[in-house]
Simulated assay, not measured.
Amino acid sequence: MKISERVYQPTEVVAFSSTKGEFGGLSNMAPGFVIRVNDVIIPTAEALYQACRYPLFPEIQKEIIEQHSLMTAKMISRKYLDKTRQDWESIKYDVMYWVLQVKLSQNYEKFSKVLMDTRNSPIVEVSKKDKDWAAMRDQDKTLRGRNALGRLLMKLREEHIFNQNPISCVAPLPITGFLLYGSAIETVCDPALEFEEEFA
């Protein structure tokens, strides 16, 4: 998946820059969107994404996932960048989209509402230093950057919200070494759905 740089007019977009505010739930750092993968409880989408960077190092994954502070988890990940999987730059957008699908599947009512509230507007994460996942304010007041997270959120909105295609289970990515705590990541389903099937 390749994502090129774009320019956005601030008045025409739904912008978010933190977990606070009306669209804070779009942030990967947003609390209240707990995820379960391979029976591991993961506090945020960001923690899951960062853990996927280190499939051969379960102890690093555990250190990231078990942090109570969301920012600390991200900072811990940065300590181990030299141990990042070698193909990370070529798969990171695919991994992020998988993470967003998992977030939606397990928090459908809450997360779908946030996405629906963006209507059909472009979604842009605004940052002061990141032109890859987000966009930065330029001298002419426009927002410029790849805005990868915003565009993946728009893809998620198009495929699963606008098309009324609720997502209950997400298959693992077909990549080598897609592991969590030393085990292959399995298909992830909404725990509520699994509970209903067990007692059906």
Rank of each mutant, 00 (worst) to 15 (best):
F33T: 11
V13P: 11
S4E: 11
E63F: 02
A73K: 03
L153W: 01
S168K: 07
D87A: 14
P31F: 15
N28K: 06
W88F: 04
S17M: 09
D138K: 14
A192T: 12
K83S: 07
E89V: 10
L48P: 08
K141W: 14
R36P: 10
D39L: 11
Y181C: 08
P172F: 01
V124H: 08
M136F: 09
A171L: 09
K129S: 11
D130R: 07
A148D: 04
L100C: 05
F111Y: 14
N163H: 10
M96W: 01
S105M: 00
I3K: 04
D140C: 12
V13H: 07
K62S: 12
G21A: 12
I167A: 00
G25I: 09
W133E: 08
P10A: 09
T44D: 09
V95C: 00
M75E: 15
M1D: 12
A135K: 02
T44G: 13
K110G: 04
L156I: 11
C169L: 04
W88S: 07
N107S: 03
I167P: 00
T176I: 12
R157A: 05
K79T: 15
V126P: 04
T176S: 14
L179W: 01
I41G: 00
H68C: 12
Y49P: 03
S112A: 14
G177R: 14
G150K: 00
D117T: 08
A134D: 03
I3A: 02
L143P: 13
Y49I: 09
L180H: 04
T19F: 00
S27M: 10
P172V: 01
H160F: 13
Q106D: 03
L81M: 07
V170S: 06
A135Q: 04
L70F: 15
Q50H: 06
E22C: 08
V99D: 01
F57Q: 05
N38F: 00
Q9I: 14
